[in-house]
Amino acid sequence: MKIVEVKNVRKQFGSSPVLCGIDLDVEKSEVVVIMGPSGSGKSTFLRCLTNLETPDEGDIRIGPHVIRINGRVTREQKKEIREMRKKTGFVFQSFNLFPHKTALENVMEGPLTIRNLPAAEAREAAGSLLEKVGLGDRKDHYPAQLSGGQQQRVAIARALSLDPTVMLYDEPTSALDPELVREVLQVIKELALEGMTMIIVTHEMGFAKDVADRVIFMDGGVIVEQGKPEQVFDHPQHERTKRFLSSTK
């Protein structure tokens, strides 16, 4: 069953094209890793999926929510985009935790504001999500009192708080010190084992080999190559993929 269906997403910044018609289907429980050199459009593509960046055109379906964009976004579409976002967990490179709220309050925010859950119920749900990411003992800490890895794990718990049908990660470990990368990847891997559908933009090759069902290599705003991790990493078909892989070895 396809959870995500994307057709012909195009985006231009000024006169320079960033996305030149991207198609992507993601099956339920599939883990898709998107790789590529910086400026290849992978982050922009991920942001276009939930309209954090509005594509110039393209059809996007996530779960039951369909957005067809061609030029201006209408009022009805904005509503549909909000509904789509409620079901899509987004994890940012720079965490973007709410600094004036504790870890627990960060995770409660969505259920409280979006779902109007009673505080006690939201508190309990948020507590168990923090346990799940291994931060049960950090509930009342403010983001400034947490390490980068801990902050990103809170951010993942926050993204999970509205029971997303798909999780999107925009370079979740790029802002972390090397020794903190593992704890975050471990949490993502556990989610993969639980069957969460995920699209992950990352530079962590080892992680991609380990967790991804499919690796997509993007360059110049197009998908150059995709396939099983061993296929893309060990037997890349395209010159650009080969060059990228050898440059990162």
Partner: peptide, 21 residues
Amino acid sequence: KGQTEAAISMGMTYGQAMRRI
């Protein structure tokens, strides 16, 4: 700007993001 993005990526309206975050 990331604060607004985090808020609206949860499905908040612009007004909610303003008020709460």
